[in-house]
């Protein structure tokens, strides 16, 4: 699999590696997918990178590759910001080869990462017709998570037809941020757009939302989908290629 802009792959890895340290990458002719839960089984991440999004891609037979995201992240930190990246696995090998090429083709770096033997439990994610779908700038969502984490470790997300309200309370007191739906949409990327079938009010652990925001560099916008008593879906699109979707179980009344 070859990417002209290796930085896209680095952003994917940086977006995942805090939530999951290692994961099984499923490679097929259609592309690369990954599904993994965090260690406490509170959150799940689903990654899709379609083959047509790569500059070149070939997969002669399906492979499940156990990869340490922490190690992969360390290797990708050596990549130049404009480098292209090629990832390859030879048929019967127990390692993955990461090749980086500088833009002006004068520097070639090659790394080999040992593959891991991971037992991957796969969960079925049902298609959900969410009560509420919010689109907002990913930087704005990152900021809100950071600000709310000052006040408490849980954030209540309430949606109404006017907008969406995030609130947190703790020992210091409480705080809330209300975003109004954007009316005059000049730049789609900066708009707050709320599609609401019915109002929802759900509580989530803010530290997971903050971990999801590590994937914000992938996309200027984030999608948040909510329904009562249903995991939140937090989606960052990967341009022309796929998406990273995080699912977080809500905190529920005893």
């Amino acid at each position: 699999a070859r990417l002209l802009h290796g930085s896209i792959f680095a952003k994917v890895i940086e977006g995942l590696r805090e939530l999951v340290n290692e994961a099984t990458w499923e490679c097929s002719g259609n592309g690369i997918t990954l599904q993994a839960m965090d260690s406490s089984h509170v959150a799940l991440v689903s990654l899709v990178m379609r083959s047509e999004g790569f500059e070149s891609y070939r997969c002669d037979r399906n492979m499940s590759l156990g990869i340490s995201l922490v190690s992969m992240s360390k290797v990708l930190k050596t990549m130049g910001k404009d480098d292209s990246l090629t990832i390859r696995v030879n048929d019967d090998s127990d390692s993955i080869i990461i090749a980086m090429e500088s833009q002006n083709q004068d520097k070639f770096a090659d790394y080999e990462l040992r593959l891991m033997d991971l037992d991957s439990e796969h969960l079925g994610i049902p298609d959900t017709d969410y009560s509420c779908a919010i689109k907002m700038p990913s930087s704005e969502f990152s900021r809100i998570c950071r600000d709310m984490s000052i006040m408490g470790d849980s954030v209540l997300i309430c949606t109404t037809k006017e907008g969406v309200k995030f609130s947190a309370k703790g020992d210091l007191g409480q705080g809330s941020i209300r975003l109004v739906q954007t009316t005059n949409i000049e730049k789609e990327e900066e708009a707050v757009i709320i599609e609401m079938k019915e109002a929802v009010a759900l509580t989530f652990a803010v530290r997971y939302l903050s971990m999801f925001c590590k994937a914000a560099p992938l996309s200027p916008q984030v999608g948040l989908s909510l329904s009562e008593d249903t995991p939140l879906m937090c989606e960052f699109k990967i341009a022309e290629m796929g998406h990273v979707r995080f699912y977080l179980a809500p905190k529920i009344e005893d």
Partner: peptide
């Protein structure tokens, strides 16, 4: 008081 639910209780094991 609210308790954190597990994600696996919402998704089906394959």
């Amino acid at each position: 008081k609210k308790t954190q639910a597990a994600i696996s209780s919402f998704f089906t094991k394959k």
